[in-house]
Design a binder for these strands. Structure first.
Ligand SMILES: [Mn+2]
Ligand SMILES: [Mn+2]
Ligand SMILES: [Zn+2]
Ligand SMILES: [Zn+2]
Lengths: 138, 138
DNA sequence: TAGTAATTAGGAATTATTCTTGTTTAGTAT
DNA sequence: ATACTAAACAAGAATAATTCCTAATTACTA
């Protein structure tokens, strides 16, 4: 949390109550929440919080690379504060997004065609399937 | 194109003029167009086409696995008719999505944690970087 | 402690997508 | 070929997600 405050100052972002609480909430969330979901959770602690502030803060923090927007095919954007290199497996049934690490993927060489394309800065694996909990259901 | 007609009949989908033209347009597009983009291109040939039909048709074809919705962090959904296994590299600057194949990634074993998670049905690599054209600009 | 530029709340506006309704059409049975 | 019917369509209204606008508040600075 102190790290976050420093990162804000570093980026010339004021350390506001809203930013702190939003970051705290996102950092402890395991479920890659959407703006709307975060808003519902935060409103309990910050009764005057506006939904716009949630959107604006998420955009700001993403721009400064303090959080990440997760790639999905859903209509609502989803976010996470976890910035260590990791990947996602999404359950097609319940839409849960689960983290995992994959060192081999992070380090293996990309195809020659991609080298010719340009400079790759980030790589993400997105797996899709059926989680065990869902598999047990009819 | 004949294949597409047969696939429609197979799926009990009527072979309509709109579906044929939309599929034809998407199949020849290289840029993973959005519904809006497709609409603008199709309206020239189908002046009475409605935007809703584009959305509805894309959803229908996706459900029957005749086209794919591409994962991006953009607000508009983007589609492709190319169904062979392939992956995407996205330019952070110009947002162009480029296809590439990566046999090694398709076949390499996923981490043990993922095996424990459930059954993986699809895997996608999404790379991000700066394409050569953009790299040449200030 | 006061000044000020950044940030916020609240509501309006915009964008992307989906729904509703009446009309048209593809496939099927005469 | 013609008529029938369920599916699909066009048009515009409605909804959902996100962004914009403006006046008030607040974090940092001096
Ligand atoms: Mn994650
Ligand atoms: Mn593609
Ligand atoms: Zn599941
Ligand atoms: Zn580019």
């Amino acid at each position: 949390m102190k790290e976050f405050e420093n990162a804000c100052r570093e980026a010339d972002l004021k350390v506001t109550h809203q930013r702190l609480e939003l970051y705290r909430e996102l950092a402890q969330a395991e479920d890659h929440p959407s703006a709307e979901t975060l808003y519902k959770r935060l409103i309990k602690k910050l009764p005057t919080l506006s939904l716009d502030t949630v959107y604006r803060t998420l955009a700001t923090l993403e721009k400064h690379r303090l959080i990440t927007r997760v790639q999905t095919i859903e209509s609502q954007a989803r976010y996470e504060a976890k910035m260590d290199k990791h990947h996602h497996v999404v359950c097609s049934r319940c839409r849960t997004i689960t983290d995992f690490t994959w060192d081999h993927f992070d380090e293996v060489q990309v195809p020659k065609a991609v080298v010719g394309w340009g400079k790759v800065i980030r790589r993400n694996a997105v797996l899709e399937g059926i989680c065990k909990a869902c598999a047990r259901q009819p």
